[in-house]
Design a protein around this nucleic acid. Structure first.
Lengths: 246, 246
DNA sequence: TTACTTAGTGTATAAAATACACAGTAGCAA
DNA sequence: TTGCTACTGTGTATTTTATACACTAAGTAA
């Protein structure tokens, strides 16, 4: 463990999204504070993954560090989306208690840079790695610490805008996916429902979504064809324009 | 002058855009460092408007404070677009000299939150107010301090994306404007050229762009009709969808 | 009065979005 | 083996939207 000191008024928070069971999920860590004397649990809630920036550390690197620590992954999509710098960010009693106990050196005006990350949730098994970290559907969030509810909302909005301009959805899917999965993912993030035939017509025009000679297996219905996304082809063909709606 | 201490590792920078003579401009302040002994000028360059966040100050308020100070305005469009937090942001010799002289208490890892602001440049006369502050066309920028070149580029990109989703362009125009001005502004920000008839057809569908019973005056050609933007009507009619391209 | 400059307008064609219904196939259970 | 379930996969007609394009109008200035 490296003994680098942390910058007391600067942190990063990673909103890590995954897609599973037809729903968008976010990775949260359980936070539980016990009374120092009685051992009684004072509160339980959840937070996104965050940490203070270290002395001499780039903020992007701080976010990558947090991400690596929680997911084990390194090369996944990660992008800054907003910085939260209100003085009253830490105003709930339990947040103050928590900080007083865990981070006594931290001032109470902490500015936090929010990062949005997308992972293939089939690859992240939080249960086995971190027993206090688990996935929650974004429409069924538990009690959240600090201003993390606002952060998640803002990250979602960022995502909704961004996926209409860039091919980010593939970060949320396994390497090989079906068109129904893809459509489902769009519908779920954008909160719309799309016509299957028209959706497939559009996908058909995107040369960078490539059909494999391979079918789904072990499903109790007609097996779907399997596709991959080729960033290579994407970069070469249509860097411009990536519209699934309109 | 209030004696509030500033947070040494946290600042805000405002990229203030204006539109004039058919070009997008950015407001910059001249920075000149003299040798303490000889009085000789060591360097001259320009920076965007920034300042450190004060103790107990929300970052949005810090940005508003900077904006007010430089433009005299309070209620103009202002939005955070990116946070710059690399450790090597301040790597040029002249930036180090400047900080050593002017802000000796400041550490060399300063995280800066970038804000984008849009003003009606006919209302801001920097000459009279601040003799070191003036407008520069974004395609003819002078030598810039710190990482402000990157900041301006990033702010521009933010603008380009944003104006296609929200009616921000009107912030850059006088209250009353002509359709040619509006079209010119779009062309200039997006770097495209638009067909006049098609452009006007589209504008015609936007009920929140309202023709006045009034014409341009004092121009050496057919005077154009004058329009206003009604945020009221906008809010009521199409919060959704605001496309000038496609 | 003429020249100059920008404003203002309509139509035909091409492209894109939308709406919509039925047959195919794998697994499973009776 | 048959039938049920559940999801896959496909084409066309219609409406809407985008695009391309050229001439007259109105004011100023010389």
């Amino acid at each position: 463990m490296l003994m680098t000191s942390l910058i007391s008024n600067l942190s990063v928070d990673c909103i890590i999204f995954g897609f599973d069971s037809g729903k968008l999920h976010v990775l949260l860590t359980k936070r539980e504070l016990e009374d120092e004397v009685s051992g009684q649990i004072l509160f339980t809630d959840y937070t996104v993954q965050g940490h203070h920036v270290l002395e001499g550390e780039n903020i992007d690197d701080a976010a990558r560090r947090v991400l690596k620590e929680k997911t084990g992954f390194d090369n996944i999509y990660l992008e800054q989306f907003h910085t939260f710098g209100n003085t009253d960010r830490i105003h709930q009693e339990r947040d103050k208690l928590w900080i007083a106990r865990k981070y006594p050196m931290v001032t109470n005006h902490v500015v936090s840079v929010g990062y949005c990350s997308l992972v293939d949730s089939t690859k992240v098994k939080p249960d086995t790695q971190h027993q206090f970290t688990s996935w929650f559907a974004v429409d069924e969030l538990p009690l959240l610490g600090f201003d993390h509810g606002i952060m998640i909302e803002k990250a979602l909005e960022f995502l909704r805008v961004k996926i209409q301009r860039e091919p980010l959805v593939f970060e949320l899917l396994p390497e090989k996916f079906t068109l129904s999965q893809l459509q489902n993912l769009y519908e779920c993030i954008l909160g719309v429902s799309l016509d299957r035939r028209n959706f497939r017509k559009k996908i058909g025009q995107m040369k960078f979504i490539i059909a494999l000679n391979e079918k789904q297996k072990g499903v109790a219905h007609k097996p779907a064809q399997v596709y991959i996304f080729s960033r290579d082809v994407y970069d070469r063909t249509k860097k411009e324009k990536f519209d699934i709606l309109t």
